[in-house]
Design a protein around this nucleic acid. Structure first.
Lengths: 209, 209
DNA sequence: ACATGAATGTGTTCACTGATCACATTGGAG
DNA sequence: CTCCAATGTGATCAGTGAACACATTCATGT
């Protein structure tokens, strides 16, 4: 049973935003499966069916949470690339992994949202901007002669996969989070130079293509 | 209400295995969340509470599913590395991504299982063998002068992150699965050579460390 | 051969969840 | 000031994980 608190007026005023805020809270506490419509309603001090006025179903609520989280993530990435005097790639990669480490459950949601198939139209745009920005950075690096020539899009994808996978490994406790910084730097260095031995036959054969 | 089918004997005989088999079926059909204890019981033709005799709770059943899937995955990886005459890394990476593409839901489960924090003791051993095998391959490559010197463990982690992230991107429909083979090869090539331009200043500075 | 205890399956029940719907309340447009 | 659309409520439904007492069967020792 639910009975409205005495003080609060019948109409909440800004329920959608409040719901999302509490949902993010629950997400951070116990992952997506802990985000139950009822508990969100409970925290908002509202009846169990009230959220359905604003979100057709639980998935829609989670999608709204995904959008909110995506905004926050995007802002963090922007901040990182701007505060980096040099080596923007390293800064971006580190910021990406750090966000995943700081908010593992948000990262899991982003995986299915921003980077997944469940992108809402609103997120589509932000994501495109983000990705295009990175590709731009790659092209600029190529123009300066720093980065290898070739399909910039493909280079971006490889870099993204690397950072993405590294983040996931940390989140899954597969790697020791306390060694995160050192590992990130080593992995990025390796990605810069390549795993093939310098002056080795294999490298020269591959380079000669 | 549930009533036992007329023909079947009271005791099933091999319920645990049957339950896991049906659970894997459900996993492939609709992901982990589609694996409900009741539906598994239903398919096994057994009462809703029967599974709890063999698995203390749903999580334990899913763990058993994880083990079964891990075996299958491990076998696929072994087969790939053995059938590869040369370039075992490429074969391994491709097999990894292909498994993820063929069984996206299994891959998601493995993420939290084999590669995650929820490893059962039984999986721990298999995983160790797998990882040690890869590190061995790296060390062998270094001895032959093919691969760059340095911490073999770190090289393994980087390669794993790359393949892991690439798999996830395909699974999440972030990348076009029909272009998988070409992309895998390009990304692995890039990982071999490194993204820094050959004969560039940045590479020489980094190499000189 | 047979009794008996352990293992396994059944039925029922509970609390919780997502979802729906008729109804209550209220703010704002006219 | 009235009425209506938006918003919140309460009750209810089916499906879920889980616990429990009970039923059935298997296996083991004598």
């Amino acid at each position: 049973m639910y009975t409205r608190a005495a003080g609060r007026p019948y109409h909440h005023g800004s329920l959608p935003e409040t719901l999302v805020a509490h949902a993010v809270e629950l997400l951070d506490e116990g992952g997506a499966e802990a985000v139950t419509v009822r508990e969100v309603a409970r925290r908002a001090g509202v009846s169990p069916s009230a959220p359905f006025r604003h979100y057709p179903d639980r998935a829609a609520l989670l999608a709204a949470v995904g959008e909110a989280v995506a905004m926050d993530f995007g802002a963090a990435q922007m901040a990182a690339v701007e505060s980096a005097d040099a080596l923007p790639f390293r800064a971006l990669g580190a910021a990406f992994v750090h966000y995943a480490l700081a908010h593992p459950h948000r990262f899991a949601l982003l995986r299915g949202g921003v980077f997944g198939a469940h992108r809402t139209p609103a997120m589509e745009e932000g994501h495109r901007v983000f990705v295009d920005g990175i590709t731009e950075l790659v092209v600029a690096g190529q123009r300066r002669g720093e980065l290898r020539q070739g399909d910039a899009e493909m280079i971006r994808i490889a870099a993204q996969a690397l950072v993405y996978g590294l983040s996931q490994m940390f989140v899954d406790n597969y790697l020791d989070a306390s060694r995160a910084d050192a590992l990130i730097n080593q992995v990025i260095d390796l990605f810069g130079l390549g795993v093939l031995a310098p002056d080795g036959e294999m490298r020269e054969a591959a380079e000669g293509v």
